[in-house]
Design a protein around this nucleic acid. Sequence first.
DNA 1: GTGTTTATCGTCAAGCAGACGACTATGATC
DNA 2: GATCATAGTCGTCTGCTTGACGATAAACAC
Lengths: 252, 252
Amino acid sequence: MPYDPSAFPPFAVTVDLVVLTVRRHALCALTVRRGEPPFQGRWALPGGFVRADEDLAQAAARELAEETGLRAHDPSVPVQDNGAHLEQLATYGDPKRDPRMRVVSVAHLALAPDLPAPRAGGDASNARWAPVEELLQQGGYGRDGEPVAPLAFDHAQILSDGVERARSKIEYSSLATAFCPPEFTVGELRRVYEAVWGVALDPRNFHRKVTGTPGFLVPTGGTTTRQGGRPAQLFHAGGATLLNPPMLRPEV
Amino acid sequence: MPYDPSAFPPFAVTVDLVVLTVRRHALCALTVRRGEPPFQGRWALPGGFVRADEDLAQAAARELAEETGLRAHDPSVPVQDNGAHLEQLATYGDPKRDPRMRVVSVAHLALAPDLPAPRAGGDASNARWAPVEELLQQGGYGRDGEPVAPLAFDHAQILSDGVERARSKIEYSSLATAFCPPEFTVGELRRVYEAVWGVALDPRNFHRKVTGTPGFLVPTGGTTTRQGGRPAQLFHAGGATLLNPPMLRPEV
DNA sequence: GTGTTTATCGTCAAGCAGACGACTATGATC
DNA sequence: GATCATAGTCGTCTGCTTGACGATAAACAC
């Protein structure tokens, strides 16, 4: 492999973000409306060019902050703040994925608690949380009966990969807590699993599992009734990041 | 995010390969000796530039074929041929990872059965299989007592990530069969797990687990004594790709 | 034949998951 | 205030899987 700078073609490198959250019992992704061609007016994943002096993770964290105001969560610190979980997802480099030029996109996956309104560089009308179920159905119709236009570029594929990563990763890690506020109840955590997986879980077995796993949940001492019913204990995420044995996703 | 072609810096995009195999009870990786600066004379992972009309997966498959003669395995076809398993691993883009220029490398992970001698573009003396344990120890000494120079660039990190991916992925998938020849015995498969994880497994429990998982192993009818001892049944990999419940990696 | 090696079958106890009954503590409604 | 609906929490039971390990089988070396 001789090194010849003229031997390689010019590439643009971008980061695209799959930002997931749980709203109203549904797994939702952040989308922004494209203001210029190609795919003008269509929804797309947020993203942008990597700058000359930036690492890929830095670029992703910068884009995340620009779009949502969220700080990226430092993986070396336990998840207790409002920072979002951010990890690299995969890289997409089909020569024809962008009709304008050769663009390689390093997709990242971010998990966030339910947020106030999104902002797309300050323009909230061009950003929204959409249920991934709507975004991924091909040629279907949204909840309002309007036909759903597919996402721009290969973003449907990227979103699909990100959702699958999130679905599998909450099985064997404590990542589901990244969807929760700093303090949460067992029931709220269970509803996260139910929304991400799209299944119903037995509250009693779930409670036994998560409270019986050492280091997963730490009681804060407080209780809340914000879900109605009997007051529930409040917890925050413990130091454990790996769940062993894993939480089993029910068969479909 | 306005689109301005002059707004992004030029990137070179490469693919680097973590090619793993099991030789003499040890997990080994393919390394090539660098012929020019930087890191001249040091060992590195094989790789090269992505061409103008190539997808990332195509580039990785081409590099793999150039270095080893292996065809990349088509994921849609059951693993029964000698093709190697190839998947994207992660992307590395630190601005300083290559002192010459901005290079973003899309690392791929390949798993191959034990092969004849490697060839580095026809030059076998500049390619070798090295135990990952030796490659990853910092400032240690190899089996021959020679001091081990660390891999070039950030390739130690890439290799480490690839090994960890392989170690975790054989837990819940049938990927370990990618290290085996087309027909293999339960004992040979067990020795793959033992080499990759660096642990000893109980032959009886392992046998029960893999033969009891539907679709994992399909008996070919033949037997072999190539390992000595009582003749063992020969199998090839079945259609099942996911192991549920997973093979449990013993605690360390 | 004896010993060695590897393969394969079987047994048993401990742990975990799924199904589900029972009870508790709130707010809402009559 | 009694009743009801809602959600949380604690138990029980059964079946499956695992880990530890005994026992037998079929080859080769001497």
